[in-house]
């Protein structure tokens, strides 16, 4: 099949927009946690189910560990978000973001019998938005075209 330049431009544009949007999401989540020092992953971890519930329990049983997890999470989100928006170390940022999202997913997976209580904005079975975002980031990571706008292009030039 012949790929036309026009199609490529649209592909490139959409991919970069996707990268910006996910970057925005990460960066804001990170900055929110930074601006609100009272935020903690305690509630999220406490409601953890399935294979990581034991790890979650250990995290929250120790203040120092929990504080470390919170800081790592906050700064991880900020770094990944900046990387995605600026297009700097895009591949690493996308892969790290994928892992982080998969972790969120696995800590509270929408499996049968593990539904979270409380007011929810949607209904999920096996698949939720976190999983979709994770796979989308993976797609960005494995698609070189997504990196053609951003600081990585400069990096390449210097290294060339």
């Amino acid at each position: 099949m012949e790929i036309r330049t026009k199609d490529l431009k649209w592909q490139l544009g959409t991919l970069v927009v996707l990268r910006f949007l996910i970057g925005w999401h990460f960066l804001y989540e990170g900055l929110y946690k930074l601006i609100h020092p009272e935020w903690s992953s305690l509630g999220f971890l406490a409601s953890s189910q399935w294979i990581f519930s034991g790890v979650a329990e250990w995290f929250i049983s120790n203040t120092a560990v929990l504080n470390t997890v919170d800081a790592l999470n906050t700064w991880g989100l900020i770094t990944i978000g900046l990387g995605l928006i600026l297009g700097l170390f895009t591949r690493a940022a996308s892969l790290a973001g994928t892992c982080l999202l998969l972790l969120y997913y696995l800590f509270n997976p929408p499996f049968i019998g593990m539904e979270l209580t409380g007011p929810m904005e949607g209904n999920y079975l096996m698949v939720n938005k976190t999983l979709i975002e994770a796979v989308t980031l993976l797609y960005i990571a494995v698609t070189p075209l997504s990196r053609s706008l951003g600081l990585d292009t400069l990096r390449k030039k210097y290294n060339a």
């Binding site: 910006f20 297009g87 053609s148 951003g150």
Partner: peptide, 8 residues
């Protein structure tokens, strides 16, 4: 091209 993310 490199600075496309700055406005975002």
């Amino acid at each position: 091209k490199a600075l496309a993310g700055i406005p975002v």
